[in-house]
């Protein structure tokens, strides 16, 4: 039978909670093994970053939704953290198969990678709850993308880099959620990545200095 928008949103929330019920909000044994395989063990940096970003997220959530909602924000961050570690493990397994390496020291010590991945996980959680506001009444609009970029002071260009790999690594994402992440991707490509403070301009400048690489395609007739 056709679902009302609120019923559809409640089902999406339930589905997300079922998927994440068996996930941990701390690194699993498999993930910890990847961390220990690194030239520089990133475990402490990762867990401290999650704690710090969790405080930022909860504070900003409370600012947007009301102070009484801080605990709800904290619960959503916990869900996002579980998704973050789950997707990270899936990504590393995939990279290990693809590259035949086990030492991901550079990647796992890259703050931009972790912040982007956590932001993407939280975007999934926030978008899932958007239909009901979590209270079954109001629709949240203030937490819409790119809100999470501002909360984490994350550059859109870096966030963009994890989207496709995130979708590949998490098979439980619904069609609607994949479309939402695609929408975020398009917003970044078409607008946010071209704002004045974007690192994209410096990268283009560097690329120009390195000289022409591939031949440009001839103009289409």
């Amino acid at each position: 039978p056709p679902q009302t928008p609120v019923r559809a949103a409640m089902n999406s929330i339930q589905q997300l909670r079922v998927v994440l019920a068996s996930a941990s909000d701390a690194p699993s044994e498999v993930l910890s093994a990847y961390f220990k395989n690194c030239t520089v063990d990133p475990t402490q940096e990762i867990t401290q970053r999650v704690r710090r970003l969790g405080e930022h997220f909860s504070q900003r959530f409370a600012q947007a939704m009301g102070q009484r909602c801080m605990e709800i924000g904290s619960q959503r961050f916990t869900l996002g953290t579980r998704l973050y570690y789950r997707v990270m493990e899936s990504m590393l397994k995939s990279e290990e198969r693809r590259l035949s390496v086990q030492n991901f020291s550079k990647l796992l010590n890259d703050s931009a990678f972790h912040t982007s991945l956590l932001a993407c996980a939280l975007e999934v959680v926030t978008a899932t709850y958007r239909g009901t506001g979590g209270f079954g009444v109001a629709v949240e609009t203030d937490l819409s993308f790119p809100w999470i970029l501002d909360v984490f002071q994350l550059v859109a260009y870096d966030f963009y880099k994890v989207i496709e790999s995130f979708i590949k690594a998490e098979p439980s994402l619904s069609r609607d959620m994949i479309k939402h992440l695609e929408h975020c991707e398009h917003l970044v490509m078409e607008s946010i990545a071209w704002r004045g403070d974007s690192p994209l301009f410096e990268l283009l400048h560097q690329a120009r200095e390195e000289g022409p690489g591939e031949q440009a395609e001839p103009p289409a007739t």
């Binding site: 991901f104 890259d110 880099k161």
Partner: peptide
Amino acid sequence: VHDYHFGLEEGEGVSELFDCD
């Protein structure tokens, strides 16, 4: 079924995107 366009080529992944290859 979704119609998301996977743009990464063979041999491209998150390691390359973050200059960690």
